[in-house]
């Protein structure tokens, strides 16, 4: 990997330097814009409702309300919901990735009839609007006795993320070199061995990418949880956010605090996974 860091070995002309300067200026400005929401969220979390509305979003809170965090943690029930969010997300992401990889592998590397049909089935599944599914899904889970059971959430997250994950993986699988796999076939490897030992590791950067996307979706989801779960003990952190929305009053400071608490774990995992995107880098980038 390192030997490829040849960078721009060309001599730098002044014009090029100016161009780079402008480029960096733009990059930095955009970066600041992208960081602003985090700052805004943090400020929001320290404000009273009165300060949130009718004042400039830049305005600093008069006296920072750290108690918003205490409110969020206890009144919003975050302490309880947090762990649920974590394990629903992990289980669903892992299931989705492995199932989607299986399917994509079969669709792009294996020989069989009905490939087109199966692919179309997955693509169409991506197109259904969420609100059309709620009543039928509730019925299905109800018949299976899965209402108020985390299995319904895991199943929903996994299934509804499958189509988009398969489609993204598909794009990558198509452009990945097949030589190693072909060589392995020649050597008499079994399909499973090829999949687990060659293809899956080779797609690590892509898996990291889709893992990030899946994780964000699952972490921020609340419609399924609200519909299929009724006990407090199975609810997730986004429900905590919504606990501060009332009919006549919404406690925005506490919502801000909840959002800050809830964004931290995925921010950390994201930064960690984000490095995997390049580290796994073209594991099988075979010559040619």
């Amino acid at each position: 990997m390192k030997e490829k860091k040849i960078l721009d070995s060309k001599p730098r002309s002044p014009l090029r330097q100016i161009a780079m300067g402008i480029l960096y200026f733009i990059l930095v400005v955009v970066a600041l814009l992208q960081l602003y929401p985090l700052v805004w969220l943090f400020l929001l979390s320290l404000k009273t409702n009165q300060e949130v509305f009718g004042m400039s979003p830049f305005a600093l809170p008069k006296s920072p309300r750290w108690e918003n965090y205490i409110n969020a943690w206890f009144d919003g029930g975050i302490n309880q919901y947090f762990f649920n969010s974590v394990w629903y997300t992990i289980v669903a992401v892992v299931l989705t990735l492995i199932l989607a990889s299986f399917v994509t592998f079969a669709l792009t590397r294996m020989e069989w009839k009905f490939k087109g049909v199966v692919l179309a089935l997955f693509m169409i599944a991506y197109m259904i609007p969420l609100h059309s599914t709620l009543i039928p899904l509730f019925n299905i889970y109800n018949k299976m006795n899965l209402i108020d059971n985390p299995v319904s959430i895991i199943l929903s997250y996994t299934t509804f993320n499958l189509p988009i994950t398969i489609m993204i993986l598909l794009g990558f699988y198509q452009s990945l070199p097949r030589e190693i796999e072909e060589a392995a076939v020649m050597d008499g490897c079994s399909v499973h061995r090829i999949f687990f030992r060659i293809t899956l590791p080779m797609t690590a950067p892509v898996l990291a990418t889709t893992a990030i996307i899946n994780m964000i979706y699952n972490w921020n989801e609340f419609v399924f949880v609200n519909t299929f779960i009724s006990s407090e003990k199975w609810k997730t952190i986004t429900v905590g956010v919504n606990n501060f929305v009332g009919q006549y009053l919404t406690d925005w400071g506490a919502i801000g605090a909840t959002l800050v608490i809830s964004i931290l774990p995925i921010l950390i995992v994201y930064l960690f996974l984000s490095d995997r995107i390049i580290e796994g880098l073209v594991a099988g980038s075979v010559k040619g």
Binding site: L99, A100, F102, V103, F105, A106, L107, M110, V118, L121, F122, I124, A125, I128, S132, T133, P136, L137, I140, L155, S156, T158, T159, F160, L162, P163, I166, F195
Partner: peptide
């Protein structure tokens, strides 16, 4: 490889569709 995912999608998405 294909059937588990396909079943999930058929069951939880195609029935609603």
């Amino acid at each position: 490889y294909v059937l588990p995912s396909l079943l999930l999608v058929l069951f939880l998405i195609y029935i609603p569709i």
